[in-house]
Design a protein around this nucleic acid. Structure first.
Ligand SMILES: [Zn+2]
Ligand SMILES: [Zn+2]
Ligand SMILES: [Zn+2]
Ligand SMILES: [Zn+2]
Lengths: 176, 176
DNA sequence: TATTGATATGTTATAAAATAACAATTAACA
DNA sequence: TGTTAATTGTTATTTTATAACATATCAATA
């Protein structure tokens, strides 16, 4: 199974009629296991418990690099007998987000696996309003115009939510 | 009644023990009427109906330049006999947001009056995690690092959600 | 100004997203 | 092994948002 991405982490989405174009392929088979492996190692090093539910939720998020709602994830867990009530999903997601293995996308009320191996970076997302695909890149708020304004105002930035909406390359072609 | 802001639009909040410092004062009495007046004029020019509910919701949002949830606004409307069910508040807010008189803050599931007279700009917000105050400034995503990356990736930006969390100047002092 | 089509509001009901609270279980460590 | 801390199970509820349809109001024009 092959998925496509570009260097900044623009992910293809399984749903709808999106045809990736101009994207590098990536070997999705090793991509999931690699990311899970990395998370496992980080947890071992940090004394965190990478429990079955947490591992499985990360796998689900990685399975097609798509943004998924908590209840969508819960449905899968329920079918697999790994938990049937909302708090189970929300707790696992809270853990993954807290430790940088996943991110929450406010605009979508959804979660996505982190596409970067460096932990605790500040992500920015490009969200296609047509096909729902989501690309991850880096926000670097302190070096941005907003960062300069914040500094001038004496505001100390701890976290940035940067979610850009628009049309991905494929959907621009489709509209034309 | 005086509220304080700085040139980029950092607003004081009525709640909690926040003491504005280093902010310019602004004449809040005229501030509300001016903004409502502006919205009225824009609506007249554009053939939009600036109805009593819509006007009142804008006044509420302006009344202390604070981010307010839809149900908080609905409570006020209900007390005033202007509508008692959620759709009334949500419709008015949808109208105000659609025409640039207010913005939705995703991180807070809340709404705030636009602090700028130029319509349809792309706002960015500085949100204090301690006192909840919200400052509005400009995102200018096309000139940002994310904008450059998006362009390189062939992604067409239509809208940007930029919400920066951290500590406002006052709360930094309080923590120290 | 009476007709009429569009826009806005009133209302009921429900959906969707998230959390509080407490009990039961499992892991970590002395 | 016993003790504490962390995690999960479970029930119930809260918060946020929308669908659907009835009624009222507005705006244009016949
Ligand atoms: Zn992959
Ligand atoms: Zn697309
Ligand atoms: Zn004011
Ligand atoms: Zn503050």
């Amino acid at each position: 199974m092959l998925f496509y991405n570009i260097s900044i982490g623009f992910y293809a989405v399984a749903s709808k009629s999106m045809q990736p174009l101009g994207f590098e392929k990536h070997d999705h088979a090793t991509c999931i296991s690699d990311a899970v492996e990395r998370a496992d190692a980080v947890c071992r090093d940090s004394g965190l418990q990478f429990t079955p539910v947490r591992r499985r939720v990360l796998e689900i998020l990685l399975s097609d690099h798509r943004a998924r709602g908590a209840y969508e994830i819960l449905d899968i867990l329920r079918n697999e007998g790994l938990g049937s009530q909302p708090p189970v999903a929300y707790r696992a997601l809270e853990f993954l987000v807290a430790h940088g293995f996943a991110h929450r996308i406010e605009k979508l009320n959804a979660f996505i696996a982190c596409g970067y191996s460096e932990h605790n970076h500040m992500p920015a997302f490009l969200i296609c309003r047509n096909c729902g695909s989501v690309a991850e890149t880096d926000a670097a708020p302190n070096r941005s115009a907003v960062g300069r304004i914040a500094k001038a105002a004496g505001f100390h930035i701890e976290r940035a939510i940067v979610e850009v909406e628009g049309l991905c390359p494929e959907c621009q072609e489709a509209e034309a």
